[in-house]
Design a binder for these strands. Structure first.
Ligand SMILES: [Mn+2]
Ligand SMILES: [Mn+2]
Ligand SMILES: [Mn+2]
Ligand SMILES: [Mn+2]
Lengths: 218, 218
DNA sequence: CTCCTGATTTAGGTATACCTAAATCATACA
DNA sequence: TGTATGATTTAGGTATACCTAAATCAGGAG
């Protein structure tokens, strides 16, 4: 059996690779909140077990084997979030951390039944796709908020940030998946974006904007 | 944070003490399916941390501190079983082992919401009481099946056995909490009990009978 | 009351998963 | 084209949680 710790490493690698970030020792250490030395050791072991390929001093990449496990964990994570929010009424900004505990306790059988209970959900509460049982991840055809032009209308597809603080803020201004928005103004060179939600306009910093993915509707 | 392993030790001690079995090193080892040597070591540490009192070569007893944690784990275990059976449709004989994975992943907040979702259940699917949030365990006024006399009618309150094989058998003959039964015949000296369920009579061995608790109705 | 035996503990060992501090490496810029 | 600097790995250490084999103990049979 794969340990919870290992599951978290693989999940981290999946996230870094999805975001197009290089999976350096330091990036993994930051994400898991542990020392770079610990990551280095662990990666070495996971390379021996063929979950990753490791080019020392360069970086890490998931193998097909590692990716399969990672996607499995991501599926359990996102289903857990869905359950926590839809069935238990846990706040969406707390769902992520809670799901990180729950995800390791779901057997395949339980995961399958949970998927049904939740009505075969396609996304987590933050809009990220739930991988299929066979490990496929649907393309949601979304683009970064920053790719929109002034006066474009769009619908929020997903929020990739998982920080409770950010999520709480976004929820408070109604910025969640399915929300209809309009770009009012853009600062040059990837600066802030001014976005209208309902009647009100909000300025979103570069950091927060980068985690918002949309589909044009206008 | 208390580890899953520690939670399982405390849970085991709770069960042994409830059943009136002496919490010997060997009994704990059998229950957890690990070596007696491992148990001995671990108990020593848990005694230092005041979860138990240990009289070397004699046995172990939960302290108030240890009992509080144990009851907390038992609550999460029984709620997990309830959830698995009622909401996910997991078979009751598989609920126990699945719950053992799930129970360690529930935060207090999640446990509280889950309790509500399940309609404040008083028992697990096998009839064992769900401890209250404050750690109280309701008395269910039940007695061992063997305490009944011939021709007594009774209602099943709980099945304390957790073996899938036994549970599957009992379910197959309709012997579960709330089932109405009648004692047809008893072998002397704690031997088999012949019990009528609906139209059919079944002989229950001493072992299996000991795990069936009832309340007289006739 | 002594001895035997099974239960228990201790000794010594492994694997995971973390740590800090020291050594080593890659590369960017001066 | 060195060299210093930051990233990475290695060295050495701790804690948990398991193991088998050896030593020790306690209580019942004789
Ligand atoms: Mn996790
Ligand atoms: Mn999510
Ligand atoms: Mn457990
Ligand atoms: Mn139960």
């Amino acid at each position: 059996m794969i340990t919870p710790s290992r599951e978290d490493y693989l999940e981290t690698l999946f996230h870094l690779e999805s975001e197009g970030v290089a999976s350096t020792t330091q990036a993994i250490a930051d994400h898991l909140q542990i020392s770079a030395a610990s990551v280095s050791e662990n990666i070495k072991k996971m390379a021996i077990e063929r979950f990753v390929v490791h080019s020392p001093y360069k970086g890490v990449k998931l193998t097909a084997k590692g990716r399969a496990v990672a996607i499995d964990v991501v599926r359990r994570h996102r289903l857990s979030e869905r359950f926590l929010v839809d069935k238990l009424g846990i706040k969406w900004e707390e769902a992520h951390r809670e799901a990180h505990r729950l995800e390791h306790g779901l057997s395949r059988a339980v995961e399958v039944r949970m998927f049904e209970l939740l009505g075969n959900p396609e996304t987590c509460p933050h809009g990220n796709p739930v991988p299929t049982l066979s490990g496929k991840i649907r393309d949601d055809h979304s683009h970064p908020l920053a790719s929109l032009n002034v006066h474009d209308r769009a619908r929020i597809v997903k929020i990739t940030d998982e920080e409770p603080k950010q999520l709480r803020y976004l929820a408070s201004i109604g910025l969640m998946p399915k929300t209809q928005i309009r770009v009012e103004r853009k600062a040059p060179f990837g600066g802030a974006v001014i976005v209208r939600v309902g009647e009100t306009a909000y300025a979103l910093g570069n950091d927060i904007a980068r985690s918002i993915w949309v589909r044009k509707t206008g």
